[in-house]
Design a binder for these strands. Structure first.
Lengths: 159, 159
DNA sequence: AAGAATCATGACGATTATGTCATGAATGTC
DNA sequence: GACATTCATGACATAATCGTCATGATTCTT
């Protein structure tokens, strides 16, 4: 059971755009350490799935398609990486047979459903707004080291 | 987020062996509709992970390494398909950078941990014995249609 | 209208997961 | 000890995922 790379990177990009209000591919690319092409592909998926709107041309870029409170993380993950257990799951895992050896319900199927339900319970109650809020807190942390002193910005001399 | 094929098939094989007490590769292969080679590979993984013991030669085969009550489904899944979120996760997803753009804690990381915890809560409380019990019930169901009547074999009438 | 900035798209190559195959080794029976 | 039965292992082929790349389209500024 794994998260896909697309889920990880796609969600990060979405958070980043939420944080900044709007952003271009080169910006997100820099922020997240991805190639521009890769970023473009991810954002394009998120756009097709209607989490982002895009505008081309000068002063273009991406912004969220709705308020972050209305973007449920579970839906984003499903769009980026599919669901853990869906209707076609059994068909895909019938081995050499045309239909799964365990007709109707099977012991494993009900386990998968339980796991899926547990995951859903978490991700359907978290919105992008929550993740953005977390990310903001963390950004603040960077400027507040444990000892509480303010970070002094190093001054480049002689340039 | 997906279950891997190995998790699905491996777990099924384990249940099947639990049901039968002991079984050979050709048997499991038939029961689950997998090729013998494929079955051999799966069982061999389960053996290396110490969920199964094997004996070679005539009257050999596989059996559970411990009582099914002692085999936690979460551990089986981790062995077959890894964990959703582990220590190396961030290293694997640092994009072009040598280390993840989000040093220390990040918004996504804490989400993954929550999801992982929810999954763990389910799978760490289910043992192979539970799945075997379910599988047994289902096998019985096949012989008990909903109306409770005994199955009468339909007789082709002269129409 | 020219040019710069920006997104759009589909094809391609690389990497990883999946499943197959050939060969070998152990065990029990006769 | 020859043989049938069974597991063991590593190399290989195939398929899915992941990420790159080339090219094109749209929009704004001047």
């Amino acid at each position: 059971m794994k998260f896909s790379a697309q889920e990880e990177y796609g969600l990060r990009c979405l958070i980043q755009i939420g944080l900044k209000g709007s952003a271009t591919i080169p910006e997100i690319s820099r922020d997240e350490g991805l190639s521009e092409h890769h970023t473009a592909k991810l954002l394009s998926i998120l756009r097709k799935e209607r989490f982002l709107n895009s505008t081309r041309g000068h002063i273009g870029g991406y912004r969220l398609a709705r308020a972050p409170e209305k973007i449920v993380v579970g839906e984003v993950l499903a769009a980026l990486g599919g669901r853990l257990y869906d209707e076609e799951f059994c068909e895909r895992h019938s081995g050499l047979l045309s239909t799964c050896a365990h007709s109707g319900s099977c012991a494993v199927k009900s386990l998968w459903s339980e796991v899926q339900a547990a995951v859903d319970h978490v991700v359907s109650h978290i919105t992008l707004a929550d993740l953005i809020a977390n990310a903001q807190k963390e950004a603040e942390q960077l400027y507040k080291p444990r000892n509480g002193a303010l970070l002094s910005i190093p001054v480049a001399s002689g340039t």
